[in-house]
Design a protein around this nucleic acid. Structure first.
Lengths: 144, 144
DNA sequence: TTCCTTGCAAACGATTTGCATTGGA
DNA sequence: TCCAATGCAAATCGTTTGCAAGGAA
């Protein structure tokens, strides 16, 4: 059991949620990938080991328990990735052609300024900010 | 015909696309709103004047002609808003509870720094950046 | 008049759910 | 053991499309 696996196991145990075969498989699959993926993509990378209907339930459980985060970045498809307490904070490159989303980082100095700004926007508008993500839209290497 | 209307009319005329009743209605509906809305929401605010299937076709035409921009921000629903050449550049407050997206601005000094950064990320990763949007996630006033 | 656009109904694709069975702590 | 998780098939929901009728240039 990898470090990541035991972190996730702990997180699920705290909530009395079982860490089953399907759930392990999904976490493992997302571990090797640096960006959100759709249910269909995960299903394929699992070579059909987990039927789609179970996969959707698995994604939903892992989302609600804070292990995954959903993104609905492009083409109206929901894409999941490991939560930031696992991957670390990052931002997204969204391809306008194929809809793929990849992770990217920004310089720490910019990041801290962005955080302050987000906080300020919250207090001045009544919007209770929790999180933020800079979405950069364009065309990825594979599509250009 | 409002200023906005004639701008849109011109844009469509350049592409030999008719500015019909349904298209005018959608543009007018989005004009009063400061954030992306789903087809269902637009349909409702039009009080069913435009049937859903026609509405989807209308949204698609206005998207392809550069009048609207789609966002797939939350709950896996596609939301449309007027393009930035009409509304001006802005960012988004995304409510994690109800999924609504509202527009917001950031200070110009921050904005220009963000633009430079986005450009740099593009050149250093092979990703051809076109556009960006800071998505601030949290809980909106109505939901808290 | 001539296409483009509309409306209706049927088709589609992603996601969800009911229910009987299996499996994990 | 005992309840949660799974697998299958059917249902649901947002969105798309074929086709005949109506409308803008």
């Amino acid at each position: 059991m990898s470090v990541l696996d035991s972190q996730v196991a702990t997180r699920l145990a705290e909530q009395d949620i079982r860490y089953t075969r399907a759930r392990r498989a999904v976490v493992a699959a997302l571990q090797d990938i640096d960006g959100p993926r759709t249910a269909a993509e995960i299903h394929e990378s699992l070579r059909g080991d987990v039927p789609l209907s179970s996969l959707y339930r698995t994604l939903s459980v892992l989302d609600q328990s804070g292990v995954l985060v959903p993104h609905t970045g492009a083409k109206g498809l929901v894409r999941y990735e490991l939560a930031e307490w696992i991957t670390g904070h990052h931002h997204h490159l969204v391809c306008l052609k194929c809809g793929t989303i990849e992770d990217t980082d920004v310089p720490p100095s910019f990041e801290s300024r962005m955080e302050k700004m987000v906080e300020k926007i919250g207090t001045s508008t009544g919007f209770n900010a929790v999180d933020h993500s800079l979405e950069i839209h364009g065309v990825c290497l594979a599509c250009s």
